[in-house]
Design a binder for these strands. Structure first.
Length: 571
DNA sequence: GCCGTTTTCGGCCCGACTGTTTTCAGTCG
């Protein structure tokens, strides 16, 4: 599957073209195409074979030819030419905040700077100040930017950003002058990683709000401070943008700052065709008169659409779906009836089975599966046959005593290199639920890994495939696996695919969820909790499911206990 | 480079803040 590679190449081409000062709309076309390819649920080579490539929005005759060329030959001539034309180092310089294509080009032309190291060196020796349009401040900002890059490892996992956002929102909420406050941006869209935190406020005294914001204790650097917009960087390196608007603009501003950019552009284009203008200040008619914008739904109403949930706003089909009245009824946290992947202190969890069950009960669940690690995972004190049998006995006794919640006996069995599980089949068949996951041999090649997982699913012994791509955000990439094939076999064998809600996993990913739904695969949203508080990760898992367009019925742990049991018995 | 319910050519979302300038280009979202 070359989708990702091609998306990366298109993004890189866009950067090269920016440096060359090419037509901005052409650049946008490449970026848009890259984005659409990334969220594509089908393999580009399939689209080529079926002649459907230009059906993909943003891909016309030219880009279709380039994609075909790359898929067939492994090369794209125009990209190779650009690489020869523009030194790669300039791209690196552009990654420094505040340095865009123009500055990067100038730095290269004037001083031959083609790496961050050289840029840092030149800035430290004040060589940049000799250049036009660069004086002390710009030079200092470049150094700060470099410092930031060195410290940060790119985007932050959603689960890490939330507590920071929560803290800031709560501090500001206490102020009388803050009338309304919400998070926006990728955080509100619940993207699995976020670039920065966006916060929107209504206040009649914006300057005061800004003052309070930039002097919060967690502020490290103030990047910008204006009358309506300020940016800070927290001590631990997360950028936070705050915007203050009037009450009558709140809806329009919320829509605008929630994004995504691509989604907004589509909405604004639609508005323009109706002779309207949409900005963060509201909806305006052709005379420039303010019409509406108090509520977020005003924006959608202006273009004749129903309100679209933030999780869907990626311009990946949600606008078309809403036009035709086919927006999904997204699953809600309250639809979840239980958690199907949880650990206890029998393996590497911290709490007893009983504590976990109580915590689940508190969250209103009807059932909780205890799926401790199995034998092969020695580091996690995986249970062998004997201990698992003891655990089953323990759980049966607990279930006898407690009537409010049912504990399901399970395991997170280990899928070996050969696709076999590490517990005997007859024991696995006794369990209520078997989750099976890969925990080792991540470097296996694509064919091997795909066969390994498929073989396991075909064994008829597992109900759920756990954290299917094995990624750990910021640490480990997804392992090589043919997800299309895996999903097909999941459908055939009626195996559910897990959406693991652990903040650093969020695996299966949103776009693969969408793909799974299209194929008709059932999903399980589970937290993989290792102590009771982690049960709350469920909301993150649900957000991934929502971003993947999943509805209640796609997810087995929205089922009642009876229905779930039937499903688990494959009746 | 894409796209089309006025169009196969001429459009392509809209605005804030900074730093360097004396009116704006560059960058960012």
């Amino acid at each position: 599957m070359k989708n990702k590679e091609i998306a990366r190449i298109f993004n890189e081409i866009a950067e090269f073209l920016e440096i060359k000062g090419d037509n901005p709309f052409r650049i946008r076309a490449y970026r848009k195409a890259a984005q659409n390819i990334e969220s594509l649920t089908e393999d580009l080579s399939v689209l080529i074979a079926e002649g459907r490539l230009t059906n993909v929005p943003g891909i016309g005759k030219d880009l279709a030819e380039k994609i075909t060329e790359y898929v067939n030959s492994g090369k794209m001539q125009s990209y190779e030419d650009l690489k020869k034309d523009v030194p790669r180092g300039i791209l690196e310089i552009m990654s420094v905040p505040g340095v865009g294509p123009k500055t990067a080009r100038m730095l290269y032309d004037a001083l031959g700077i083609d790496s961050i190291e050289k840029l840092e060196e030149a800035a430290k020796f004040h060589k940049l100040q000799k250049l036009p349009k660069i004086r002390e401040k710009t030079e200092a900002n470049i150094l700060k930017g470099i410092e930031f890059i060195k410290r940060s490892r790119g985007r932050i996992p959603l689960g890490m950003a939330w507590p920071v956002a929560y803290k800031i929102v709560n501090s500001l909420k206490k102020q009388d002058i803050v009338k309304c406050i919400d998070t926006a941006g990728s955080l509100r869209r619940y993207k699995d990683t976020i670039g920065d935190i966006d916060i929107l406020v209504v206040s009649s005294e914006p300057e005061k709000v800004m003052d309070i914001f930039v002097s919060l204790p967690l502020v490290g650097d103030v990047l910008a401070e204006g009358e309506t917009k300020s940016s800070i960087r927290t001590r631990n390196g997360i950028q936070v943008d705050l915007r203050v608007v009037e009450e009558k603009s709140y809806g329009a501003a919320l829509a605008y700052f929630t994004g995504s950019k691509a989604h907004n552009i589509r909405i604004r284009e639609m508005a323009a065709r109706k002779g309207l203008k949409i900005s963060e200040y509201g909806i305006f008619n052709s005379m420039g008169k303010w019409i509406s914008g108090r509520e977020e739904s005003d924006v959608y109403q202006a273009v004749g659409l129903p309100w679209i949930p933030p999780e869907l706003r990626e311009d990946t089909g949600e606008i078309e779906a809403s036009q035709s009245g086919h927006l999904p009824e997204l699953v809600e946290l309250t639809d979840i009836k239980g958690d199907l992947h949880d650990h206890s202190n029998w393996s590497d969890g911290e709490n007893t089975i009983e504590e976990m069950a109580d915590a689940a009960k508190k969250r209103g669940y009807k059932y909780l599966a205890i799926t401790d690690h199995s034998r092969a995972l020695g580091v996690a004190r995986g249970l062998d046959e004997k201990r698992l049998r003891e655990q089953i006995e323990t759980i049966r006794k607990l279930n006898g005593r407690c009537r409010d919640i049912v504990i399901l006996c399970g395991t997170e069995a280990n899928i070996g290199m050969n696709g076999l599980l590490d517990l005997p089949p007859e024991l696995l068949k006794e369990l209520d639920i078997v989750v099976a996951s890969v925990h080792s041999g991540f470097k296996q090649d694509r064919t091997g890994m795909t066969e390994r997982v498929i073989k396991c699913m075909r064994s008829g012994l597992i109900h759920v495939l756990g954290h299917p791509t094995g990624r750990l955000l910021g640490e480990r990439d997804e392992y090589e696996i043919d997800m299309g094939e895996v999903l097909k076999v999941a459908k055939e064998t009626n195996t559910a695919i897990e959406v693991n809600a652990y903040p650093f996993r969020l695996d299966l990913t949103d776009y693969n969820c969408k793909r799974a739904k299209e194929i008709g695969v059932r999903m399980a949203v589970s937290t993989d909790s290792h102590f009771t508080e982690q049960l709350d990760y469920m909301s993150l898992g649900v957000s991934v499911a929502r971003r993947g367009w999943l509805e209640k019925n796609d997810i087995i742990n929205t089922y009642s206990l009876e229905k779930l049991k039937q499903w688990l018995k494959r009746e």
